[in-house]
Design a protein around this nucleic acid. Structure first.
Lengths: 324, 324
DNA sequence: CTGAAAGCGCTTACAG
DNA sequence: CTGAAAGCGCTTACAG
């Protein structure tokens, strides 16, 4: 008789005592899963990730994002379930997550995930994806952010640019850029066009998003191309670039300018402090989780939300050096 | 008839087709929770955290730790459930997590959590806790690590030390230090004793574990106490101290030495590179998760595992400056 | 080969 | 006030 736990006033205190004592004696505890089944509620928020858990946890971007999602979970008393691709498929991971709703991250090429989620009638919000009709999403104006940062460099006279980008993944060859990376590339192309340049006029390097990869790529870049400015599409890569330039004894921004993207907390702690594009990562996580909670409660839907990306000029960019 | 999904060879292909088609038509998808109930398995690993999700996600220590746990989840196809205290109680959070086992973090004062877990007969491993009889745990030799780093400073002639510690939490007044912090304090006391000093001879500051708190505390420390060496009990705090000393124009290690604890990836990227105590955080997470998986599978138990903590001397420590 | 039935462990109307 | 029964949505022996 679960009344003892759930409805104390419906039974006499004596009986209640008796039941609880017996439960203690037997070492009884209600089953979490059975209760979820009966209640039709898990009190868990799922985050469907595009990469392995280990890779995600290594990336400070996700720390920020999950902090935002976590704030909402803390507030609402939800638990946070992290769900990584199963055999390289986000779709296959869905049936294994007992959650009341999903925040879906970086769904760059939809292989049925949206249909599966709709079919299951489980609320979800897409984040860092290619927005779709009638599918709730939270996105950032990556295009404008990327455009502004490149314009900034161009205005300072830089023409010999290198773009340090994250690896676009295996789909890239057949499907082109997708999601935020596609938007950032667009922004770069637009900025270049203003001065009559194209992507063919810049050096592009694509690497995994880690500090050491940014470091190594920059070493190579300086040896082989010697740009006057490095446009990193992530702060983590930009910070790795700063490390490399410091080790090479190159002055930033005296000899080389560096820009990032994200405005991680670390960005402002760099020496020199990093010029970057701020996107409110934690806010993005919080917004997505808030939308999800509303949807779970059956409240009004918010189909699309756009957050801005703004250029933050700090100390790592300056005028192009006079030619040597 | 779930045979269509689970036991394809037990029915004719035609029937199977018919069922699957009907399922598609109706938008049917098996319920995750019902399946868990029936199977008695969730395929989820729980991490029972001592702080809010937002606080945890902000701390790079946990990023490393969860990376280790995540590696095991990735490998075993488990999902990762993060469970924060409910109304300030880890105990109350337990019934809401549908998991096959728990990694319990930083359980510094047991308020029935262990009993509850045992009662539920759910496997668990304690990490960063005070080890208990017959309870599986993974811990680090914090005492030796702390002792070595303080000895290192003492050998370099430092006698005017400040300890920058994490906030010991509300229980501290009644229960004293607990868990890893207690062990680190012990190690410090032992090292000091070797030169006839006690805690009364050092300045102790306790702050939340964030870079900016380390920064602020160090500013205050230099103004009010002017130590020749700062022993931070976490790399995050040490890095904040480095920031502050840089801003004050003080040379490290020329004028002030700084040590950390953890050896986060960031430590080796600092300028100067940080002298610190390495604990294999990711390994700790991986080990705990491995133990948990064995326990879930009913394999042999590993009651206690100790990992070492070793001093890594880099560039942020040097001989005490000649008195001015 | 296939359908009906029991059981996983709860919660909550419903009789008594 | 309290006990027995139905139902949450699956899976899997068991008849037919």
């Amino acid at each position: 008789m679960s009344f003892a736990y759930n409805n104390p006033h419906r039974i006499s205190a004596a009986t209640r005592e008796r039941i609880l004592a017996a439960a203690e004696e037997l070492g009884y505890a209600p089953s979490t899963v059975a209760r979820m089944l009966q209640a039709g509620r898990t009190n868990a928020l799922g985050v469907l990730l595009p990469q392995n858990l280990a890779t995600v946890m290594e990336n400070p971007y996700y720390a920020q994002f999950l902090m935002g999602v976590g704030q909402v979970c803390d507030q609402e008393g939800f638990t946070l379930l992290l769900s990584a691709p199963l055999r390289d498929s986000m779709l296959k991971a869905i049936p294994y997550a007992a959650v009341d709703g999903f925040v879906v991250c970086g769904l760059e090429s939809d292989r049925g995930e949206v249909a599966e989620l709709e079919r299951r009638k489980i609320p979800f919000v897409l984040v860092d994806s290619d927005p779709q009709e009638n599918v709730p999403s939270v996105d950032v104006d990556d295009r404008m952010g990327a455009r502004e940062v490149v314009e900034h460099l161009l205005e300072m006279g830089h023409r010999r640019l290198a773009v340090l980008s994250m690896d676009p993944g295996p789909d890239h060859a057949e499907r082109g850029y997708r999601g935020p990376l596609a938007r950032r590339m667009e922004g770069i192309v637009e900025a270049l066009a203003e001065v009559g340049m194209t992507m063919a006029d810049v050096e592009l390097l694509e690497v995994p998003v880690t500090r050491v990869d940014g470091f190594r790529a920059t070493k190579r870049l300086m040896a082989e191309y010697a740009p006057t400015a490095i446009v990193a599409l992530s702060d983590v890569l930009a910070i790795g670039a700063l490390d490399a330039l410091h080790e090479l004894g190159l002055d930033v921004p005296g000899q080389v300018s560096v820009t990032g993207f994200d405005d991680l907390p670390e960005a402002a702690w760099q020496r020199p402090r990093l010029t970057t594009v701020r996107q409110a990562i934690a806010t993005k996580g919080r917004t997505a989780a808030d939308f999800l909670i509303s949807a779970i409660r059956g409240e009004d839907q918010h189909p699309h939300q756009y957050l801005s990306a703004t250029l933050i000029v700090r100390e790592s960019t300056g005028r192009v050096p006079r030619s040597p």
